[in-house]
Write a protein that binds this DNA or RNA. Structure first.
Length: 598
DNA sequence: GGGCCGAGCCAC
DNA sequence: AAACGTGGCTCGGCCC
């Protein structure tokens, strides 16, 4: 450990001439370790301090404030050599925003580790990888010195510790890559890793472009909701006043709320005083009891959620530089392979109620919102090869109506809303491993009747049942499940002696059955993002991917080419779907508008 | 005052 | 009350 710094071989590059001299050497390599240092996490405003490039033998630390980076551009942008980086999205964005370099061909050690250990570990920091693969204990404390505003690095001056640290992070990547790649091959995960690496620049671009939001419209929508929430709050407080011995009055003589409606504890207390003891204040509990307070409370909560989660807090994230939102897309956020998103999470913006229409196209542009039609059920048809499912999609018959008709043995024309709803509930519930209890609850049947209905369903769709049973059995036997593209999710199987054994197994079976469905959908969306980005680049189109929500992709395109881009997006999404789905057609719904809407 | 966790609820 | 999969955000409440 103490000899760590002594072993670091690197050359500091402080002039363009020096840089020009080393470029041919870099171009001859198969792989390069790559890292960058800046003073902020935000690529739009961070300074680019250093680019560290390592061959297997030595590192070059380039002082970006003293060097013209032009000679370096080709080697970083080319398909070869392969650039190994930890969290390559960060380097991609920083290089793009601050140096105009479009990083090409990456192997991301962080994503590789996510792919390898998906489901059983989230230890993907460089520190963790160095420990795991090299038995090396990294000291990352020096990193903080780069973000220190008094740092001399702002003037192009770096301490030996800073340079050692920077060089080391690039040097160790080769050995981590070598070991990870061997695992990826052995586990047949090269395919998945490659897809993830191709998604990196797409996500980088998506974040850099960001989304435009109509602040005035957003605020007026929130104001309406606040008004409604306050009205209900006042009502509830009035209803409950008799429960408290005194009303609380603050220094200014204002009455404060007698109870905090956001506190489950206080609510339980209030219900108790009303003679209604409750186990909890969940939506399920409150919706069952017939009391005006419960009703009003649920209404209050709806507004409260909208206001706190989607109100001013989202506007606070607007970037001052371009007035746009630049969320953090986590391309491997979920263990199924799905994206997650934060700061802010644009994947949970309420679908209705006037929120989404506040997301607008830039002046002179249009938003193209494209989403896969029933992609998860199509995947279910593909993996199960159930003839009835396949037929529905191949003949373009409404699946839920067909299901109802077959289950209840009535002609398609005789299927009413209720029966279609019941069939739809089962179709969707299957993918989540839903049981008769919760199913019955949703469609208004007793547990027994709901059980019977499931029996009828499975006797009609025998291959669906067989597929679900097979996956459930295999995930518990082997400890993993895969998507159609080979993506793997591992499960930690409980000990037989575990008191919760059955419960845990049940949960793993459900998650295991869901993985091939949800995960294949994620694979497809990722291929689509890659395909679309490639077309945009090839044709140098004035159009940009800005958002994705699991089975949906939003593109911002200049008005005069929006129709063509929309057509291309649809084609590429379908192509991505048909890459994995061979027995069912893939359908995509596309909408062109000045706002985000389906 | 920050970290952590559960409850509750938004998305697909 | 309850066996419906994947996430993130906000809050209250508890801890140090």
């Amino acid at each position: 450990m103490e000899t760590q710094t002594a072993q670091i071989q690197y050359q500091l590059i402080t002039s363009t001439e020096e840089l020009e001299k080393i470029v041919p050497e870099l171009e001859n390599e198969q792989t390069l370790g790559l890292d960058t240092e800046g003073n902020k996490l935000d690529p739009l405003t961070s300074k680019l301090f250093l680019i560290q490039i390592a061959t297997k033998e030595k590192a070059f630390v380039i002082n970006c404030q003293k060097v013209d980076l032009t000679p370096l551009k080709p080697v970083l942008e080319a398909d070869r050599p392969l650039k190994i980086a930890q969290n390559a999205k960060f380097d991609y964005s920083l290089l793009k925003a601050q140096a105009g370099i479009t990083l090409g061909a990456v192997f991301d050690t962080m994503l590789a580790e996510r792919v390898i250990t998906c489901g059983i570990s989230r230890e993907i920091s460089l520190r963790a990888l160095a420990d795991k693969y090299l038995g090396m204990k990294l000291d990352k404390t020096i990193r903080d010195s780069f973000t220190d505003p008094t740092n001399a690095a702002l003037h192009g001056k770096f301490s030996k510790e800073q340079l050692d640290y920077a060089a080391r992070d690039a040097l160790i990547l080769h050995e981590i890559f070598r070991k990870q790649f061997a695992i990826l091959q052995k586990e047949e995960l090269v395919n998945t890793a490659k897809l993830e690496f191709q998604v990196v620049p797409v996500v980088g671009e998506m974040e850099l472009r960001g989304s435009l939001i109509d602040q005035k419209k957003w605020r007026s929508h929130i104001a309406e909701l606040i008004e409604k929430r306050n009205t209900i709050n006042t009502e509830i407080q009035k209803d409950l006043r008799h429960l408290t011995d005194f009303s609380q009055v603050d220094l200014f003589g204002n009455e404060s709320d007698a109870i905090n409606l956001d506190s489950p504890l206080q609510l339980l207390e209030a219900f108790k005083k009303l003679g209604i003891p409750l186990p909890n204040t969940s939506e399920a509990t409150l919706s069952k009891i017939d009391h005006p307070l419960a009703k009003k409370l649920l209404e209050y909560r709806g507004f409260e959620k909208m206001i706190t989660s989607f109100g001013e807090s989202i506007l606070e994230k607007i970037h001052p530089l371009d007035n746009r939102l630049h969320p953090d897309f986590l391309q491997l956020g979920a263990d199924t392979g799905r994206f997650a998103c934060n700061n802010p999470n644009l994947q949970q913006i309420p679908a209705e109620s006037g929120f989404r229409s506040c997301f607008i196209a830039s002046p002179g542009y249009k938003l193209i919102t494209a989403d896969y039609s029933q992609i998860e059920l199509r995947i279910m048809a593909e993996v199960s090869q159930d003839p009835a499912f396949l037929e529905a999609f191949n003949k373009d018959i409404d699946l839920h109506t067909l299901t109802a008709s077959q289950m209840f043995r009535i002609p398609i024309e005789k299927v009413d809303k209720e029966k279609r709803f019941q069939a739809k509930s089962i179709n969707f519930g299957l993918m989540y491993g839903r049981g008769p209890t919760s199913l019955g609850l949703q469609i208004g049947l007793s547990v027994e009747d709901s059980k019977k209905l499931l029996d009828v369903y499975f006797s009609t769709y025998k291959k669906v049942k067989r597929w679900l049973d097979d996956v459930g059995r295999d995930v518990v036997r082997y400890g993993y499940a895969r998507t159609l593209d080979g993506r793997k999710r591992l499960f930690t199987l409980p000990e037989r002696t575990d008191p919760d054994y059955q419960k845990l197994i049940g949960s793993i079976e459900r998650a295991g059955k869901n993985m091939p469905i949800q995960g294949t959908s994620a694979d497809i969306t990722k291929y689509a993002l890659v395909y679309i980005a490639e077309k945009l680049r090839q044709n140098n189109l004035d159009a940009y991917l800005i958002h994705t929500v699991h089975d949906e992709i939003v593109t911002e395109a200049r008005e005069d080419i929006a129709d063509d881009v929309a057509k291309m997006v649809e084609e590429q999404m379908i192509a991505a779907g048909q890459k994995l789905l061979k027995s069912v057609p893939v359908k995509v719904d596309v909408n062109i508008s000045s706002v985000w809407e389906k």
